[in-house]
Design a protein around this nucleic acid. Structure first.
Lengths: 228, 228
DNA sequence: TACATTTATTATGTAGTACATAACTACTAA
DNA sequence: TTAGTAGTTATGTACTACATAATAAATGTA
């Protein structure tokens, strides 16, 4: 294999225009609401067909960076970050290494939210969380996974960080997908959801961190055995 | 404001085609390498012009979900998740709430990687980390920020999780941006980088977690004072 | 003058045609 | 058998045409 040599830029015009536009936005310090030149103006300035410009613009529209209205023209807008993330997070077509990475990422988040939780938690939240934990004891197995999801989702909700909450919600399918890949039975940790609620109420941050770690221990064991 | 009523789908054809294609990919259980129908076939099947199809396809190309070669046609490929994330992570056009969320997200990651670190750390890594921490003591202020970045980046590298490492690298500008917004002087935590290295070498996971928390304390204080 | 209605005007959205280009196939000739 | 050539095909780019919606201008009416 020849090293240090890159293939001639066979990048499509649309791709190059995308890059150019991104630079243009940055250079002009565009902010949400700011109007853009018309498609024809852009095409003329870039020396490409309107078609190519539209393909590039279509990309920005998908990301939510650009919004377009007839006659009014196009304006910059603030993108939905998590929404964009969702568009590429399809376990079926992701490579295994990245899947494993995402699996670990969820564990990192799960153990990392403790401090945030203790800053933001309220009595009302704790009541709701307790209700979820109590419900799962009664329920049969069919609904156990749903309750598992509900419990952890509630935790993220309690951090008051909406981006984080939505983000972890996207990670859940990945988590399930990876576990399914291995065909191993999921073993529960020693610390149950109800234990965690109890700690959140009366215990310290440190105790909660230990509790959560213990709760997730089976997953961490899995990570330990995974050879990179 | 009228609730429960949505505006008539004034979504563009390109947007609708994007959705249709996504469903089509899922339904056909497409995996990387699988060939797609030609643009003309898609256009005919969807009942739209080739132009519209291309605008939608352009979006998938940006995400890295589709690759196209002349004559050979198009194939599914696995997207670069972090790369995609990078495309929407422009602090300048992000709304403040999300910026704050991302700031917190970084803190969550930083405190959450401890367990992963202890699973994966090697002597070689520790030596390198120590070298970075030592360097920053000598350096003058100009390079302090660079060293700050280098140290924390190295930590993520040590987790052996490349996605995580790249991800936090994208978060760094946000972090700087948010701090700059407030125009407050950055106060260092009581635990220095050199302290952290020492703990990583000889101490337990628990000690490291406490150390990191103490190191980040000024940032957490900032979060505490931030009213949502 | 003030207001309502109609009429351009304009930029995006969609359709269709044409042709360049790269890559693959099959055929041909040495 | 192999080298070379011609043909085929799907993407890439360009251009034209027109529909559509939103705005602004112009007009008419009270």
């Amino acid at each position: 294999m020849v090293n240090g040599i890159k293939p001639i830029s066979s990048r499509s015009m649309a791709e190059q225009v995308e890059v150019s536009l991104r630079e243009y936005f940055a250079q002009k310090a565009f902010k949400p609401g700011d109007p853009l030149p018309t498609e024809l103006e852009l095409a003329a300035a870039l020396g490409v067909s309107r078609n190519v410009v539209r393909e590039a613009l279509s990309r920005f529209k998908m990301l939510g960076i650009i919004e377009a209205k007839k006659k009014a023209g196009m304006v910059i807008s603030n993108p939905d970050i998590v929404g964009t993330f969702e568009k590429v997070l399809t376990p079926e077509i992701m490579d295994e290494a990245t899947l494993q990475d995402m699996f670990e990422l969820r564990l990192v988040l799960e153990t990392g939210i403790a401090d945030l939780l203790y800053i933001r938690k309220t009595e009302k939240d704790l009541d709701e969380l307790e209700e979820i934990a109590a419900r799962e004891v009664k329920d049969n197995n069919n609904f156990r996974i749903n309750n598992e999801i509900a419990f952890h989702s509630k935790l993220y909700e309690m951090t008051g960080n909406n981006t984080l909450k939505r983000f972890q919600n996207l990670l859940l399918p990945i988590f399930g997908f990876v576990i399914k890949l291995e065909k191993k039975k999921v073993i529960s940790g020693k610390v149950t959801h109800q234990d965690l609620v109890k700690i959140l109420r009366k215990g310290t941050v440190k105790e909660f961190k230990e509790g959560m770690l213990s709760h997730l221990q089976p997953h961490f064991d899995r990570v330990k055995n995974f050879k990179k």
